[in-house]
Amino acid sequence: MTKNTRLLLIDKDQVDSLLTLDDALDATREAFRLHGLGAGRVFPVVREKLASGGVFGIKSGGVEGQKILGFKAAGFWPGNRALGGEPHQATILLFDPDTGRPLCVIDGNVVTTLRTGAAGGLGLLQFARPESVRLCVFGTGVQAQIQARFALRLMPALRSLAYVSVNGKPDARFEAGIGPDAAARGCALAHAADRDAAVAASDVVITATPGTGPLFSLDAVRPGTHVNAVGADTEGKRELPAGLLARARLFVNDAVQARAIGETQWAKDLPCTTLGELLTGKAAFARQPDDITVFDMTGIALQDLTVAQLLLQRATASGAGTRVAWPW
Score class of each variant (00 low, 15 high):
32 F>H: 14
231 G>W: 03
28 T>E: 12
133 V>S: 15
116 T>D: 10
272 C>E: 09
10 I>S: 00
288 Q>F: 01
54 G>A: 01
257 Q>P: 00
129 R>S: 14
328 W>C: 08
289 P>I: 03
182 A>E: 03
218 L>A: 11
79 G>R: 02
112 T>P: 00
324 V>C: 08
5 T>H: 07
106 I>C: 06
256 V>I: 09
309 Q>L: 10
8 L>F: 12
169 K>R: 15
126 Q>A: 13
17 S>Y: 01
312 L>I: 07
30 E>A: 14
98 D>Y: 12
281 G>L: 03
12 K>P: 00
252 V>H: 10
190 A>G: 05
323 R>E: 13
259 R>C: 01
180 P>Q: 10
284 A>H: 14
60 S>Y: 11
269 D>Y: 07
326 W>N: 09
190 A>P: 04
257 Q>R: 04
126 Q>M: 11
134 R>T: 04
30 E>G: 05
326 W>Y: 12
295 F>I: 05
245 L>A: 14
153 R>G: 05
23 D>N: 13
49 K>G: 14
36 G>W: 02
219 D>A: 13
231 G>V: 04
228 N>E: 09
258 A>K: 00
109 N>G: 11
94 L>W: 02
98 D>P: 06
198 A>I: 06
271 P>R: 15
248 A>Q: 05
142 V>I: 15
238 R>P: 14
137 V>Q: 05
12 K>Y: 00
305 L>Y: 04
23 D>T: 07
239 E>N: 09
190 A>T: 10
67 K>W: 02
297 M>D: 11
93 L>M: 13
183 A>P: 08
57 G>I: 05
314 R>T: 08
220 A>Q: 11
71 F>R: 04
188 A>S: 15
2 T>M: 09
211 G>R: 03
118 A>V: 05
7 L>D: 00
